[in-house]
Design a protein around this nucleic acid. Structure first.
Length: 462
RNA sequence: GGUCCUAUCGUCUAGUGGUCAGGACGGCAGGUUCUCAUCCUGUAAACAUCGGUUCGAUUCCGAUUAGGAUCACCA
């Protein structure tokens, strides 16, 4: 039985795309093995909680289509799935560790700790708690109920070894690890305690998470051992990077998943792109479905180096997905995407064939097709005799007796000849007159959709 | 700074003790096209450095360098 999870912390306003990449692997691994994928909210830092963050995250996860088998919303056999609702559990286990002599109470003030750390740093020592309270446990246990206190894990001496499914054996000397606070003075657990207890109680078999957690995994290993619990499989995947190779951050890049979805990047395209970050299809394919990914994905194929997140390739990929859609599907998605604008459905559907091969994301649609719904207001025609040009175009178009019977393109070509304008230049300028844009759908078809009168109207504006 | 992780075209990557080091995005050039795009064709572009092992290293080992992560009553 395989059980995986993601553990978002509502300290941001939305899900980071890197978290989606992690979630994807967790999801795929669970599904591939007929297991369960779980969402657990790790809201143990009440000072950094972002209002509405959790709701937004769950909403985004739902939009992206990674459906959890167990979560705060759907519940499950190991509920609650929100750490703030499990405080009694953490307290119980933390005190169990104290009873076992693996952890201890500490009443040191933040001021003392800060001062100590500063002194250690100026002496170029490893900043570590000096275990002052460990020596006074008897006194402290008597007064602890009247005094703010935390519980610290006593880090045993020696080498900590564990196996990482993507990086192999990792060894760290325990002397580099501080006696971690595991239960805070407000009664909330720190990440380390919460994650270990919950992963154990929720029977998580594979912990697939970002590389940033690699240095703290030894702390978790110590906790597992202190409790006498068996280790899950750890797999630390590489972090998405900014173009400058630093960890993908909102200061340097858009990182919220909604940002991409709101531009009309399809969830399946985003997942497909993210799947290629640190992994590649065994047949070298670039485009594949989530189902196919689940089928061919394997933890052992995960790459160890960190990839740069490239929005250009993401857009290319989304364009591939757009081109795979039927006219009806794409029309529906565009109507949904622009539902606030209440676009004319028939017009949207008619315009699809003109733009399906030239938009990369749904938000490109109106950039290209706005003129169908609203005449452009400005014209920037780069032609020497501007005034005369409009006059000529207008009068010549009026002369076209049977607009519909004639091939419009041909009429325009003849017109161009009369005006002694180079053919391609003429068409380009005409396009700008009618659409207000240089890059646009094909002219003939656009004119047919708009109709003769509408075209003429636009031509006479100047 | 300590610890840990990482190193193939600009980017995502495949791959091997002997390969013309392959593909994709992006770039460039050409074709198609009423513009753009699509599509097609071609092209430039990489094994970080130095040692070692070896008949032979991009591949195995070590060091160096570079990049990254992490060292909280944050996750």
């Amino acid at each position: 039985m395989v059980r995986t999870r993601i553990a978002p912390s509502p300290t941001g306003s939305d899900v980071h795309v890197g978290s989606i990449a992690t979630a994807l692997m967790n999801y795929a691994w669970a599904k591939k093995n007929n297991g369960q994928f779980i969402i657990r909210i790790e809201d143990t830092d009440r000072t950094r909680i972002v209002e509405g963050g959790e709701a937004q995250m769950l909403k985004t996860l739902k939009r992206i289509g990674l459906v959890a088998d167990e979560s705060p919303i759907v519940g499950g056999p190991y509920a609650p799935y929100r750490q703030s609702e499990r405080l009694d559990i953490y307290k119980k286990y933390a005190e169990e560790l104290v009873a076992k002599g693996k952890a201890y109470y500490c009443i040191c003030t933040p001021e003392r700790l800060t001062k100590m750390r500063n002194e250690q740093q100026t002496k170029k020592q490893i900043p570590k708690y000096d275990r002052l309270c460990l020596k006074k446990q008897d006194q402290i246990s008597k007064i602890k109920d009247q005094t703010p206190h935390v519980i610290r894990l006593q880090i045993p001496e020696g080498q900590i070894k564990f196996n990482d499914a993507v990086r192999g054996e990792i060894t760290i000397d325990a002397k580099n690890i501080d006696d971690q606070v595991i239960l805070k003075s407000d009664g909330f657990p720190t990440y380390h305690l919460g994650v270990v207890i919950d992963d154990y109680l929720m029977k998580i078999t594979h912990v697939i998470r970002g590389e940033e957690w690699l240095p703290s995994t030894p702390k978790h290993v110590i906790l597992y051992r202190a409790f006498g619990w068996e280790l899950p499989v750890f797999a630390h995947i590489s972090l998405l990077r900014n173009p400058d190779k630093s960890k993908l951050s909102k200061r340097k890049n858009p990182v919220w998943t909604s940002y991409y979805l709101d531009q009309g990047i399809f969830p399946e395209a985003l997942l497909n792109y993210l799947a290629l970050m640190g992994w590649s299809h065994p047949e070298g394919k670039d485009i594949f479905s989530l189902e196919e990914y689940i089928r061919v994905f394997d933890i052992k194929d995960i790459q160890t180096s960190s990839p740069v997140f490239d929005p250009v390739k993401l857009e290319w990929m989304n364009g591939m997905y757009i081109r795979q859609k039927s006219i009806r599907q794409l029309a529906d998605q565009i109507l949904e995407f622009y539902k606030d604008k209440k676009l004319d459905e028939a017009l949207v559907e008619k315009s699809i064939p003109l733009i399906q091969e030239r938009i990369k994301k749904l938000s490109d649609y109106l950039t290209l097709c706005e003129f169908f719904f609203k005449a452009p207001e400005k014209y920037e025609i780069d032609i020497t005799d501007k005034k005369d040009f409009f006059g000529k175009v207008h009068s010549e178009l009026e002369k076209v007796a049977d607009w519909k019977a004639l091939a419009i393109g041909e009429s325009l070509a003849n017109l161009a000849k009369k005006l002694e304008i180079k053919n391609s230049q003429f068409f380009a300028d005409m396009r700008m007159v009618i659409t207000g844009k240089k890059i646009s759908p094909p002219l003939n078809e656009s004119m047919e959709i708009l109709g003769k009168n509408e075209c003429l109207k636009r031509l006479t504006i100047n």
